[in-house]
């Protein structure tokens, strides 16, 4: 995928001026871990603000807590996990401690979510139309007939051919790309303020992936979106700002331009070295050695230290997320621009 363009840098600047829509503070999501002294923290003290019109990329390897962060925004962390600390505010309203009935009005209505796997994400025995209208009728005060019209327009808007006939159809009649379009239509149908796309293109072929990315970019250029991906290339395509997560924590955050051109955290450096580029000057891909800590591991100090080639003895203490020069980084030894020049 291509690197950052001037357009996205401009978008980042406009985005920064927008008002804060979603605000997450010190979010902790825990899963009980029987037989061990401490529970597993899938999300461990995550804070961020999402501003109007901004596309925020949440990047990291599998198991870094990206999806759990997204699911907790909707209050649908799978049992037995739950949010044990922190707060989530949508505009001025705290939503993480709402009663279920209230929370259900947020889901799909204020925050819409597109999931990773379009092959299993739609109910196989219910028509596409009925799955769309179910959501419309839940959140909007419209008649059945109006809901069907809205469903038709939702499908049409995401580029599904002969959308009218598709309403009667079933998911298995559609290809993966078209099913993902249906998933996007479903997430957008009630015009939520915030869209979360969780690996929305990961399960698709490269060409379809590009089509879906185009669709997201086109339909959501002015929307406020969180894009979860493990693919730096995808993030570079459409994000204004990037948050890199590792082991349930944010390790670096900055504009897409900053992060791509001068990554501070060794993990971000590693992620970028692992992105294929059509550039003969770069000799080869450099994988990050080792694997991230799993749910069984008990992490002390910097969770990335065991895999980090810059690790030193002080890395056995947990690094706070602090400004290193211009950027928030959780590392004792960030790759500073000033040092790099030496």
């Amino acid at each position: 995928m291509s690197v950052v363009t001037e357009g996205t840098a401009d978008a980042a600047r406009t985005a920064a001026s927008g008002e804060t829509i979603l605000s997450v503070n010190d979010l902790v999501v825990e899963f009980p871990r029987p037989g061990q002294p401490t529970d597993f923290r899938a999300v461990n003290g995550v804070s961020f603000d999402l501003r109007q019109g901004e596309t925020l990329g949440l990047v990291g390897e599998s198991g870094s807590g990206k999806s759990m962060t997204a699911l907790s925004l909707l209050g649908i962390v799978p049992a037995p996990g739950k949010i044990i600390e922190g707060s989530i505010n949508l505009r001025d309203r705290r939503i993480d401690n709402l009663p279920v009935n209230e929370l259900r009005k947020v889901r799909g209505n204020d925050i819409g979510m597109v999931f990773q796997d379009p092959m299993t994400g739609l109910n196989p025995v219910r028509s596409i139309g009925s799955q769309l209208t179910e959501s419309v009728l839940r959140h909007q005060d419209v008649s059945k007939q109006e809901a069907i019209e809205l469903a038709f327009h939702a499908l049409d808007d995401v580029g599904i051919p002969s959308a009218r006939e598709r309403l009667e159809g079933f998911p298995h009649e559609l290809s993966g790309g078209l099913r993902q379009r249906v998933m996007i239509a479903l997430a957008l149908i009630n015009h939520p303020e915030v869209i979360i796309a969780d690996e929305a293109t990961t399960a698709l072929d490269a060409t379809i992936q590009a089509q879906i990315l185009d669709l997201l970019r086109e339909r959501l250029s002015s929307a406020t979106m969180i894009l979860i991906t493990h693919d730096m290339g995808v993030a570079a395509e459409i994000c204004d700002r990037i948050m890199v997560m590792y082991a349930g924590r944010i390790v670096e955050t900055g504009t897409i331009e900053e992060v791509l051109t001068s990554p501070r955290h060794p993990y971000t450096v590693g992620l970028l070295s692992a992105v294929p580029k059509f550039d003969i000057r770069r000799p080869k891909l450099v994988p990050i050695p080792g694997i991230p800590p799993t749910a069984e591991d008990i992490v002390r100090g910097c969770p990335f230290a065991p895999r980090c080639r810059f690790a030193e003895t002080d890395c056995d203490q947990r690094p706070p997320l602090e400004y290193a020069e211009d950027r928030l980084v959780a590392c004792w030894h960030p790759r500073l621009a000033s040092e790099r020049k030496k």
Partner: peptide, 12 residues
């Protein structure tokens, strides 16, 4: 997964 999708859309 489709249950999660429905939940994410506010299904009770």
């Amino acid at each position: 997964d489709y249950i999660r999708t429905a939940r994410a859309n506010g299904a009770g």
